[in-house]
Write a protein that binds this DNA or RNA. Structure first.
Length: 472
RNA sequence: GGCGCGGUAGCCAAGUGGUAAGGCACGGGUCUGCAAAACCUGUAUUCACCGGUUCGAAUCCGGUCCGCGCCUCCA
């Protein structure tokens, strides 16, 4: 079976995903900061990571998937203060919301999901190591900074040569609270408590404060996956400075290589521009559902582009995805009917006719290619079911291979929840059926129009009819 | 300015040297009282532009134009 590969940002080349121990691939994904609903751009990254994990597991390797929850930083503190809530209850709420969205999108739960607040001592330990090795220094206010100049490899991942903040963006002036640093490129490992932080501070050898953002990922990834682990992942925007800083912190502290592979997914765009909280053009899963689309439809849209290409989100793309998904659902139903009721236990080791689909995914997670190959097979099976006499056993085999493919993509083909039509619409439809049976087609057509004007359409079958809500 | 990604049919999008996958939409057909749904079927002599290499290029090289991302919190 083809071994999965991905584009590694460090070497800028496609590399095989391997387990250093030969069995379990350790994966660390930078998770959400829980101060509001995650947007669909966040979920593009999480879904791609989910897909990667599924492909790795399908290839025969195990995974250990760690994804953190950032539950303390400027934004969580500021927002919880503004709402008069404790940081804990505030982040608890948004963490629960995040989990609900993940479940709806059929994301496999990480094996470990550590939160920054629960790992403060671990982070303090890491800072102490860095200070001891002279990679960090304590500022007058009790903050601790990482000395970027002390780490020779700094910039290797992002390839940004000039670390000084003196670029053309005109933001060369440091803000007031940054004067403590020796160099503008240095970043905070520990932030001393400020009045606006309220009670949100933890004791440390340098006084009360809280950990810097980059630190939690270094501390927790190494704690749960080891000082050197297999794969580190996140959105491209984390490449610099977040991941660069993680490398600096971790490798300076341990003297060992940090992550063996770096996996980054490109941004989701809206109207050709990056979707982000600061741009104010973000959509959430709730927005998508409000417009009448299922979470699976969103999952399809977010998978439809290769992860290294920018993907421009449009509402029309959801329509296309919905139609495509319906076709899959249809084949599934047809296979089930042909296979008969007691379907054979799936032969879980065989992709059957869907082998090219797995192959495409294993090859640098080429989702568009995989989807293309998938529909080619779908078409072939549809034709076979229609024109040839496919045995129940054959259909059963195809069905189990198809189900396996669905799982590989992470699609759940739950039947659309049946929506009850209003009683008056139901009455019109019933009257139309009677008129049709009486061959009073003029009356039947008039009633059909009435029903359609109300937003419903009638699908006749041999022995009855079905009411379906018209797509809005 | 530095670093990086990209420009393929109406839309989305594979394809990195051998003669353009797939999805959506649209046209035709089967079925239907009519429809819908479903299935069958058709649709790019051409891959931003200009040169070059080659028997052969969307694919390689050089140049031009355009879009986007990062360089600052950010998936």
């Amino acid at each position: 079976m083809t071994h999965p590969t991905i584009f590694d940002s460090m070497t800028r080349s496609v590399q095989p995903v391997t387990a250093a121990d030969g069995r379990t691939v350790g994966i660390y994904c930078c998770g959400p900061t829980v101060y509001g609903p995650a947007h669909i751009g966040n979920f593009r990254t999480f879904i791609i990571q989910d897909l990667l994990r599924r492909v790795i597991e399908a290839s025969g390797l195990q995974t250990r998937h760690v994804r953190n929850i950032t539950d303390v930083d400027d934004k969580t503190i500021r927002q919880s203060q503004a709402e008069g809530k404790s940081l804990e209850s505030f982040t608890r709420y948004w963490t629960d919301r995040f989990h609900a969205d993940c479940e709806a999108l059929n994301l496999l739960p990480p094996h470990v999901e550590p939160g920054a607040v629960d790992h403060i001592p671990l982070q303090i330990e890491l800072i102490e190591k860095l200070i001891a090795k002279d990679h960090a220094y304590v500022a007058d206010d009790g903050s601790v900074y990482y000395r970027v100049s002390s780490f020779a490899h700094y910039g290797r991942l992002s390839r940004l040569q000039d670390r000084e903040i003196t670029t053309a963006c005109g933001c060369g002036t440091q803000s007031d609270d940054e004067y403590e640093r020796d160099s503008a490129a240095d970043f905070a490992l520990w932030k001393a408590q400020k009045p606006e932080d309220g009670p949100n501070a933890w004791p440390s050898p340098w006084g009360p404060g809280r950990p810097g953002w980059h630190l939690e990922c270094s501390a927790m990834s190494m704690a749960y996956l080891g000082e050197t682990f297999d794969l580190h992942s996140g959105g491209v925007d984390l490449l610099f400075p977040h991941h660069e800083n993680e490398i600096a912190q971790s490798e300076a502290a341990t003297g060992k290589p940090f992550a063996r592979l770096w996996f980054h997914s490109t941004h989701l765009l809206v109207d050709g521009h990056k979707m982000s909280k600061s741009e104010g053009n973000l959509y959430t899963l709730a927005d998508v559902i409000d417009r009448g689309y299922s979470p699976m439809t969103l999952r399809y849209v977010l998978i439809a582009g290769q992860y290294r290409q920018p993907l421009n989100f449009t509402w029309d793309s959801l329509n296309a995805a919905q139609s495509a998904l319906r076709r899959l659902q249809h084949l599934h139903t047809a296979l089930q009917q042909r296979a008969g009721e007691p379907s054979v236990a799936p032969s879980a080791s065989d992709w059957g006719p869907f082998t090219p689909v797995y192959e495409a995914l294993a090859q640098n997670l080429n989702t568009p290619d995989a989807l293309g190959k998938w529909f080619t097979v779908v078409h072939e099976l549809e034709r076979a079911l229609k024109s040839e006499s496919v045995s129940a056993a054959q259909a059963g085999e195809w069905l189990s291979a198809f189900d396996r493919t669905l799982t590989l993509f992470g699609f759940r083909l739950d039947a659309e929840p049946a929506v009850e039509a209003p009683t008056e619409v139901q009455a019109w439809a019933a009257a139309r059926w009677d008129a049709k049976q009486a061959r009073d087609f003029a009356q039947a057509d008039a009633l059909r129009q009435q029903v359609e004007a109300a937003g419903w359409s009638i699908r006749d079958a041999k022995t009855g009819y079905e009411l379906v809500k018209t797509a809005s």
